[in-house]
Simulated scan of single mutants.
Amino acid sequence: MKLRFTRVALFGKYQPLTSSVISDSSRNAVQEVAQFLRNEGCEPILEQETANNTGISDYPAMPVEQIGKECDLGMVIGGDGTMLGIGRQLAPYKIPLIGINQGRLGFITDIPLGEHASALRPMLHGEYEEDARPLMHACVMRQDECVFEALALNDVVVNRGSTAGMVELRVEVGGHFVSNQRADGLIIASPTGSTAYALSAGGPMLHPAIPGWVMVPIAPHTLSNRPIVLPDSTDIAVEVVGGRDVSANFDMQSLASLQHGDRIVVRRSEHCVRFLHPRGWNYFATLRKKLRWNEGGS
């Protein structure tokens, strides 16, 4: 069979510390997958920071922007946190991504490292399931000016500081006032993020095919303040009315400090992240495995 992908970019899991230290296991994982790709007839290309931090110099290295323009496929070797960051950066280029799980949970990096060869070989030849996940676009508005904006794949979270009391938030959906909420914070999650922080805060899981979001209060003052599922075709605006040390987080990787009167406006982005999975993959099998549900039968 003819190769479907030839130029494959590799993104490794590392901690960009001042010492640029990376564990031997992470370095070995990148090296192992790169060698496998070369044996299969692909051209492995390392993302520049991955190359710098692993010290692997056997393959060409490129920054993310160049990878987006020149590569056919990206492989993320790490956990879901690594995938979130890479997915946001590569979404505008429409490059599909495969996740090789070196973390502990792995909802979106679903191929175990020890099984990468058997899983990847047919995928490189076009045997895969494709799964498109929309991104969220969030903007912090201050006196009619956007002072901070970011993309998120999982969620946008407005919450209090670690030593502060509750925050008070004014919520609008589609331009309509919903409520003033007093809580530790508020989560607006995509279907992808519905199995992350939103789930631990009591929110429902949304199937990835649902064009919606879930809005989940964190430890609300009023017990009747419950999670609600909303269409992703409408904007959600969250205004900071009260509270100290209030911040907005975007996939827990971007941070904006907020002032009273700031509005966080969340809307569906024009970009999607394209995930590729082994043939036969389905969402419910992932939930059973990762959440350790009792399958009951075959």
Score class of each variant (00 low, 15 high):
238 V>E: 01
129 E>C: 13
180 N>V: 12
242 G>N: 13
128 Y>S: 03
247 S>F: 11
228 I>R: 01
223 L>S: 02
196 A>E: 10
138 A>E: 12
202 G>V: 11
239 E>G: 10
158 V>W: 02
234 T>K: 08
140 V>F: 08
152 A>I: 13
159 N>P: 06
223 L>P: 01
180 N>K: 12
258 L>E: 02
218 I>G: 01
136 M>W: 01
246 V>Y: 08
256 A>H: 00
131 D>P: 14
182 R>Q: 15
167 V>I: 15
191 P>E: 15
228 I>F: 03
132 A>Y: 06
261 G>K: 09
192 T>C: 04
243 G>S: 07
226 R>N: 07
153 L>P: 00
181 Q>M: 13
179 S>H: 13
192 T>F: 00
150 A>V: 06
250 F>I: 01
201 A>K: 02
154 N>R: 11
265 V>Y: 10
159 N>F: 11
267 R>S: 12
211 P>A: 07
179 S>E: 15
241 V>T: 03
221 H>K: 02
231 P>K: 05
200 S>K: 08
160 R>V: 06
252 M>S: 14
190 S>F: 05
168 E>K: 13
259 Q>P: 06
219 A>N: 08
212 G>S: 09
142 R>S: 09
245 D>I: 01
259 Q>K: 12
264 I>K: 02
133 R>S: 03
241 V>A: 01
195 T>K: 01
141 M>Y: 15
242 G>K: 08
172 E>S: 06
210 I>W: 10
139 C>G: 10
255 L>H: 14
222 T>G: 01
129 E>Y: 14
158 V>M: 12
133 R>E: 02
125 H>K: 13
260 H>P: 09
154 N>P: 14
230 L>T: 05
193 G>P: 02
136 M>E: 02
211 P>H: 09
175 G>W: 14
132 A>L: 07
177 F>G: 09
180 N>A: 11
239 E>L: 05
185 G>V: 11
259 Q>H: 14
127 E>T: 12
181 Q>P: 00
193 G>M: 01
266 V>A: 02
192 T>N: 05
149 E>R: 07
206 L>K: 09
128 Y>L: 00
238 V>C: 05
261 G>I: 11
220 P>V: 04
193 G>Q: 01
231 P>T: 10
193 G>H: 02
146 C>E: 15
150 A>P: 13
140 V>P: 02
149 E>P: 07
238 V>K: 01
215 M>Q: 02
182 R>F: 12
209 A>L: 12
174 G>F: 12
156 V>D: 10
200 S>C: 09
132 A>I: 07
268 R>F: 03
259 Q>N: 14
184 D>F: 00
239 E>K: 07
260 H>I: 13
258 L>G: 01
220 P>W: 00
159 N>D: 15
249 N>Q: 09
244 R>T: 06
155 D>Y: 06
